[in-house]
Computed example of a mutant assay.
Amino acid sequence: MKNYILQNENAVYFECGYSCDNVIYISIGDDNYFITDARYEIEAKLMAQNCEVIITNNLIKQTQEILQKSKIKKINFDPNDFSVYLYEKLTSNLNIQFRQKENFSKLKRLVKTDAEIDKISAAMKLGRKGFKRFADFLRTDGINKSEKYLFFKAKEYMSNYGELDLSFDPIVAINENSAKPHALPTAKLMKKNDFLLVDAGVKYERYCSDRTCCTSISKNMSFSRGQKFKTKLEQKIYDIVLKAQLTAISKVRSGMKASQVDKLARDVIEKSGYGKYFIHSTGHGVGLDIHEYPNINSRSDVILEDNMVFTVEPGIYLNNKFGVRIEDTVVLKQGKAVIL
Score class of each variant (00 low, 15 high):
residue 4 Y to M: 06
residue 7 Q to N: 13
residue 7 Q to W: 01
residue 8 N to Y: 07
residue 12 V to D: 02
residue 18 Y to H: 04
residue 20 C to W: 01
residue 21 D to V: 07
residue 21 D to R: 09
residue 23 V to G: 04
residue 24 I to L: 09
residue 30 D to A: 09
residue 31 D to G: 00
residue 42 I to F: 11
residue 60 I to V: 15
residue 67 L to V: 08
residue 71 K to Y: 06
residue 79 P to V: 11
residue 80 N to V: 11
residue 83 S to R: 07
residue 87 Y to H: 09
residue 112 K to M: 14
residue 116 E to A: 10
residue 117 I to Y: 04
residue 117 I to A: 05
residue 127 G to H: 04
residue 128 R to P: 00
residue 130 G to E: 07
residue 131 F to A: 10
residue 136 D to C: 00
residue 139 R to H: 03
residue 143 I to L: 14
residue 144 N to G: 02
residue 145 K to H: 11
residue 150 L to W: 02
residue 154 A to H: 01
residue 156 E to W: 10
residue 161 Y to I: 02
residue 163 E to A: 14
residue 164 L to E: 08
residue 167 S to L: 09
residue 168 F to E: 15
residue 170 P to S: 13
residue 172 V to F: 15
residue 177 N to S: 13
residue 182 H to A: 10
residue 189 L to S: 09
residue 189 L to W: 03
residue 197 L to T: 14
residue 202 V to F: 05
residue 204 Y to H: 15
residue 204 Y to R: 06
residue 206 R to P: 00
residue 210 D to C: 09
residue 212 T to G: 13
residue 234 E to M: 09
residue 234 E to A: 10
residue 243 K to P: 00
residue 244 A to I: 04
residue 253 R to H: 12
residue 254 S to N: 11
residue 260 Q to T: 10
residue 264 L to W: 03
residue 268 V to C: 04
residue 268 V to I: 15
residue 271 K to L: 09
residue 278 F to E: 03
residue 282 T to A: 14
residue 283 G to Y: 06
residue 284 H to G: 08
residue 290 I to E: 09
residue 290 I to Y: 03
residue 293 Y to C: 03
residue 299 R to M: 10
residue 305 E to G: 06
residue 308 M to I: 13
residue 312 V to L: 08
residue 314 P to A: 06
residue 314 P to W: 02
residue 315 G to Q: 02
residue 319 N to S: 15
residue 325 R to L: 15
residue 326 I to M: 13
residue 332 L to K: 02
residue 332 L to N: 02
residue 333 K to P: 00
residue 334 Q to C: 05
residue 335 G to H: 07
residue 335 G to V: 12
residue 336 K to S: 09
residue 336 K to N: 11
